[in-house]
Amino acid sequence: MLLYTLRRILEFVPTIFIALTLIFVITRLVPGSPITALIGNQSVDAAQIDAITKQLGLDRPILEQYLEWLPRVVTGDFGQSLFFSAPVAEVILDRFPITFALTFMALLVTVAVGIPLGILSAMRRGGILDYFGNVLSSLGMALPPFWLGFMLMLVFAVSLQWVPASGYRPMEFGFWSWLSRLVLPVLALSVSQIGLVVRMTRSTMIEVLGMEYVAMARTKGLRERTVILRHALRNAMVQIVTVIGLVFALGLGGSVIIENVFALPGLGELITTAAIRRDYPTLEGGIFYLTLVALVINLMVDLAYAWFNPRIRYA
């Protein structure tokens, strides 16, 4: 297991380099100078343009820029944000806890609802629960999360006034005050994820329940609970764990848009703002940070996968 862990961590390194290089290439090599896009219609004098050009290092050859950029970025230094007069790293770390709280809580809700519902659907295939699970998951996956967010806002904040419509308040102002502003975003983000998890769990579980070792466990006279939990679920978990990783990555992507809906000052909101304002250092940093988190989650999923599956652990 230790050897496997080390190998996976080593494989992790080139992936990060590829991700960084892609970020660099996409943001620098597109037609047109970022400067013109950055400035747009505003009237800016030549001195300012020069300053920005220097700051971004755009006056130098592209390869040289890359070689200067890469080692700097690896240490977490993405430079100075063009719009927040602060280092990008600082801005990101400021906002990440919000994004993390949102995606992590959404993941918890998704797992807590989706996995049991998927298991029960598989166990009572063709039953009423299976039917509702299927309708619900199909609908959940078809709803645009941001629109669902507005609908939730309309019902629970505007009409019922149970929770505030939008905005964010740090936990120092009280736990409920913090949580009440996250309930709707978490729900909006969870619904489509739940649909996915219910379906994947259900089909995995159906596959596993059809396995001969599950039939054998029954033949041995084990209680149904033991058959399901010890024999079926344990094997299904191998697949389900990968789904959880996938869902977390999806959630990070989805948080970008949900944070916009609910005016949560998280990383996603930062990324979209940076994208629209063409604040490249911030955009690069934000995207890299999100990608890094997704990669770390993926790594953890791989390790969990091995933990559940002895054939990999000892390979």
């Binding site: 001969e212 070792y213 039939a215 466990a217 006279g221 010890r230 024999h231 094997n235």
Partner: peptide, 21 residues
């Protein structure tokens, strides 16, 4: 009674054993 007084030996020992236990 299953597994105690009446026991079964299956066809496929490979797939009848749980790979994760």
């Amino acid at each position: 009674i299953r597994g105690d007084a009446i026991a079964v030996v299956p066809q496929e020992p490979m797939t009848s054993l749980n790979p994760t236990l």
